[in-house]
C-alpha cells in the first residue's frame, strides 16, 4: 500500500467492521485541470480496499453530468457517500479526506451505513423544524485537528434532515473558492452563503445560525 501502513490499515479495518450496511463511495474526478484527482483516486481506492462493505464508483464530473447534477457536485475531486440502495444522502467531501479528515470520513461512512448516533431529544427537535433548504460549507485544512469535528457535525445535520446539505471543502485544493469566501481560519462554516462562524462549535451554534435562514 502506498498511503496506509499496515498498522493504520488494520485499525481502519477494525473501525469499518462497525458498519451496518454497505456504502458506495462515488468519486467524481475530471480529466483536465485537476491536480489532485489522480492522488485522490489512489488514496480512496486504498482506503475502501480495507472493508468489503465499501464500494468505489468512479465518475467523471463532465461525462457523468447527470449524476453530478443529481448529487449536486460542482467541483473535482469530490466524494459523495451513497447508502446501500445508492441513495444520495446530501453529504460530500470536496478534496481528499486524508490527514485529520480521515476521521470525518470514517464517522460519516459509519452513519451512512445505518449505524447512526443518537442525538439528544432537544437537538433532534430543532433539526426536525428546519423546512427550508440549507447548504452548509465547512472549509478545512488537512493539518487541522479540530476541523474533522465540524465536518462531522455538518454531515450529521444533513443526514438527519432532507432539507440540509453539507459539504467539506479542503481550502488548499480549492484555493480560489477559499479566497472568495475569505477563509483565513479553519474550520470556517458558511451557511447558505450568508451566515458564518469559525471553529468546531457545538451543534447548538450550528443550529442557531441555521435557524437564521428559516425566518420569513
Amino acid at each position: 500500500m502506498k498511503y496506509l501502513n499496515e498498522e493504520v490499515a488494520k485499525q481502519l479495518e477494525e473501525i469499518f467492521s462497525g458498519m451496518k450496511d454497505d456504502v458506495t463511495v462515488a468519486l467524481f474526478t475530471k480529466e483536465d485541470d485537476c491536480e489532485s484527482c489522480e492522488d485522490t483516486n489512489d488514496f480512496i481506492s486504498e482506503l475502501i480496499s480495507v472493508s468489503p462493505k465499501l464500494h468505489l464508483e468512479n465518475l467523471d464530473i463532465d461525462k457523468d453530468s447527470d449524476k453530478a447534477n443529481e448529487f449536486e457536485v460542482l467541483m473535482a475531486p469530490s466524494i459523495v457517500l451513497l447508502d446501500k440502495d445508492k441513495n444520495y444522502k446530501r453529504i460530500k467531501f470536496n478534496g481528499v479526506p486524508s490527514g485529520h479528515e480521515i476521521n470525518s470520513f470514517i464517522s460519516s461512512v459509519i452513519e451512512v451505513s445505518g449505524n447512526s448516533q443518537k442525538l439528544s431529544d432537544e437537538i433532534q427537535a430543532r433539526i426536525e423544524k428546519i423546512n427550508k433548504p440549507v447548504n452548509i460549507k465547512v472549509f478545512v485544512t488537512l493539518a487541522c485537528p479540530h476541523c474533522a469535528g465540524a465536518v462531522q457535525k455538518a454531515h450529521k445535520l444533513a443526514l438527519e434532515n432532507p432539507n440540509i446539505q453539507a459539504d467539506m471543502i479542503e481550502a488548499q485544493t480549492f484555493f480560489d473558492m477559499s479566497e472568495e469566501y475569505n477563509v483565513s481560519s479553519v474550520p470556517k462554516i458558511v451557511i447558505n452563503d450568508e451566515f458564518e462562524f469559525v471553529g468546531n462549535q457545538p451543534l447548538e451554534v450550528f443550529l442557531d445560525e441555521i435557524e437564521k435562514t428559516q425566518v420569513a
Binding site: T141, C144, P145, A171, S184, S185, V198
Partner: peptide
C-alpha cells in the same frame, strides 16, 4: 479580524497563508 487574518492555531491555519 479574528478569522479574518487573526489566528490562534498555526498548524491549522498556516497553510492558508502559503
Amino acid at each position: 479580524y479574528s478569522g479574518k487574518g487573526v489566528c490562534y492555531c498555526a498548524i491549522c491555519d498556516g497553510p492558508l497563508f502559503a
